[in-house]
Amino acid sequence: MNHVREYRRAQKLSQMALAEKVGVARQTINLIENDKYNPSLDLCLKLAWELNTDLNTLFWRDKKES
């Protein structure tokens, strides 16, 4: 599971607000948070910038988890 939801909540952002910031639909953010959609690298970077973190923190998972 990625950490997009935790970081979004920590920033007090709704899914809609984050979606508008990164230029996607709200449903896309919801699917990413639930690990049902693999975002492009470009979108991952945008998410990391908007949530003031880096790709590793947001998306990294160990081999056992995947």
């Binding site: 449903q27 896309t28 492009s40 470009d42």
Partner: peptide, 8 residues
Amino acid sequence: VFVDERIQ
């Protein structure tokens, strides 16, 4: 409909 990368 909002056309984003997922829709595409």
